[in-house]
């Protein structure tokens, strides 16, 4: 947890401050292409002669921001839909869950590519689309999780008591269910956030994510893979950054889960 959050803080600082201290611009051609590590260019230069170090540190913002925002939206949307569906039950629940299951049964990446293809070429590469894709992929999974919590909670007497008072669905979900689901949803958020960079990176790598000249890491790996033999560092640098980000997010999620788990034990 400590290591994870420490790393995450570093990532955050880098992503926010990078534009001020990065030695070069992201789209600036500064030197001969495909140079290895050197003092001038710690991570070398890419196929177009851009400084990889500058691009990696600036890319942190794209990846971090995209991952966190899209996961957050997915968890919020999925959580609310799941809780309502689980509480209301009946045909609505049945319908939603069958649809979600159908969506979940499609492999992650295939579904993401499908959605991007459906959105049309003019929108491809926009951040909004990427966020939308992550939400589409993750929200049903979160919703199912939230629903299972809600189904367990609705039979509890305090929810019955609220029903007996004649509380509205909105008020029951907000006051009675949500506070009891936050722990699980937070953990869900952490775990999902750990996978999102991989998804976004994969999309970038395949050319369906961010558009050039964006310094998104997945895209960068893809662009530079031709230079892998000449200067390995230009591929390894964004790849390792991505790996470390995923590890940091997962460590945080684990720590969070353990912390909340301990709390749950203490308050039976």
């Amino acid at each position: 947890m400590l290591v994870g959050s420490g790393l995450l803080v570093v990532f955050l600082i880098v992503s926010v401050t990078a534009p001020w201290w990065a030695p070069h611009g992201v789209a600036e051609t500064v030197d001969t292409p495909l140079m290895g590590m050197s003092w001038a260019h710690p991570f070398g230069t890419d196929v177009l002669g851009r400084d990889v170090f500058s691009r990696v540190v600036n890319g942190a913002r794209d990846d971090l921001f995209l991952s966190i925002v899209s996961t957050l939206v997915a968890v919020v949307v999925g959580g609310i839909v799941g809780l309502v569906s689980g509480y209301v039950g009946g045909w609505l629940d049945e319908l939603l869950m069958r649809v979600f299951e159908a969506v979940i049964s499609i492999p992650l990446l295939v579904l993401a590519l499908l959605a991007i293809a459906a959105a049309g070429p003019e929108r491809s590469g926009s951040w909004l689309l990427l966020i939308g894709v992550v939400v589409l992929v993750y929200a049903p999974r979160v919703a199912r999780m939230a629903r299972s919590i809600a189904v367990d909670l609705v039979t509890r007497d305090f929810v019955l008591a609220a029903r007996l008072r004649g509380e509205s669905v909105r008020s029951i979900v907000r006051r009675e269910l949500l506070p009891n689901a936050t722990g699980v949803l937070l953990v869900e958020f952490g775990v999902r956030a750990g996978y999102t960079p991989i998804l976004i990176g994969s999309l970038g790598f395949l050319g369906f994510g961010a558009r050039p000249p964006s310094p998104e890491w997945g895209l960068m790996i893809s662009e530079n893979r031709d230079g892998l033999l000449a200067a390995p560092v230009i591929v390894l640098a964004p790849a390792l950054s991505l790996a470390v980000l995923v590890i940091a997010l997962n460590l945080c999620a684990d720590g969070l889960a353990r912390y909340l788990g301990r709390q749950a034990v203490r308050t039976p």
Partner: peptide, 15 residues
């Protein structure tokens, strides 16, 4: 008004 058997379950633990 209804009062339930088990107060552990009838009171919302987060309120």
């Amino acid at each position: 008004q209804l009062v339930f058997q088990n107060p552990d379950a009838s009171l919302n633990p987060r309120q």
